[in-house]
């Protein structure tokens, strides 16, 4: 029983990481109509920037927190720059070109990361506050993973509040169904697009920083996470934030229990789930009917 609970918690922490990254991806898609294939590369940038911050700070205990604050902002600024300088030139083009376009970013960013940080794999140490595990409802659990779960829930809550209760959030929701009309009603859509793209990149950056102490960083890790984002989006429904949440949760659980019970085929499980969803409910949990 305790074991299962531990697995559940592990699954939750993974699910929250996945949610943070994939919600940015789906948000960008729903407002801008562009699937940013380089989203995973933004995540990777988050990881490497966190490492750099940690290196600069040396052994200073707060380096993780500074990284968590700074790195996602840098990623967001980079995202905003890319949207402003390049992406907005191709909104009028067909989706396949937008695809191809963001695809080229992966090549560029991945190689740049390789040039700047090298192929040497690195990992940052956990902030001291998380050095000891916690006793949580009777099980001993990594305090850092618990922190990830709480932070993920917090971001999910804030996003929900932003989208449902603020005027800017309403504009985002309106733009996700009808970009043109939002512009005709006087909303500065170019600015909106830049902001939403930056927000998506920021979320990817947060996910990256959070994963930095858990996993060794390598150039190309962006592609692994983007595939996970795809799976989340297919399962949850393209453009649906609620869908991203529940799909990330499902996938997190599937992976955690998969690793625990059927480690040989764990990797294929998420694909299997995606295949099943595509057969029984092609538009995903909360997806709109495709236009």
């Amino acid at each position: 029983m305790e074991d299962q609970f531990l697995i559940l918690l592990n699954g939750l922490s993974f699910a929250m990481l996945l949610f943070l990254v994939s919600v940015g991806f789906t948000l960008q898609f729903s407002v801008l109509g562009v699937l940013n294939l380089a989203h995973g590369s933004f995540y990777m940038l988050g990881v490497f920037l966190a490492i750099t911050v940690a290196m600069f700070m040396g052994n200073y205990a707060g380096n993780f927190w500074i990284g968590l604050l700074l790195a996602p902002l840098l990623v967001a600024a980079f995202g905003a720059f890319l949207e402003w300088s390049l992406l907005r030139r191709i909104y009028i083009r067909d989706v396949l070109f937008q695809y191809l376009f963001t695809y080229t970013w992966i090549l560029i960013i991945d190689d740049l990361v390789l040039m700047i940080w090298g192929a040497r794999y690195s990992i940052i140490s956990l902030p001291p506050i998380f050095s000891a595990p916690v006793n949580f409802l009777g099980v001993t659990f990594s305090s850092y993973r618990l922190f990830i779960i709480l932070l993920g829930l917090l971001v999910a809550g804030l996003l929900w509040f932003f989208l449902q209760k603020t005027k800017a959030g309403m504009i985002v929701r309106a733009a996700s169904v009808n970009r043109e009309m939002v512009g005709a009603l006087g909303v500065n859509t170019p600015l909106l697009f830049t902001a939403v793209f930056a927000l998506g990149a920021w979320l990817a950056g947060v996910g990256g920083v959070l994963v930095a102490p858990l996993q060794t960083a390598y150039a190309g890790m962006g592609l692994d996470i983007i595939v996970d984002c795809f799976i989340v989006v297919v399962i949850g429904g393209m453009g649906s934030i609620k869908g991203a949440f529940w799909a990330a949760l499902t996938l997190g659980m599937l992976r955690a229990f998969g690793i625990a019970y059927v480690p040989q085929v764990e990797m294929a499980l998420s694909y299997l789930l995606m295949a099943v969803i595509l057969i029984i409910r092609p538009r995903g949990f909360f997806g709109r009917e495709e236009a």
């Binding site: 699937l35 294939l37 989706v95 695809y99 983007i226 595939v227 795809f230 297919v234 393209m238 694909y271």
Partner: peptide, 17 residues
């Protein structure tokens, strides 16, 4: 099963598998 958008995405995912 779905649009061209999904097609591109899914082909990439399966290749990664």
């Amino acid at each position: 099963k779905r649009s061209k958008l999904y097609f591109a995405m899914l082909t990439l995912a399966f290749a990664q598998l």
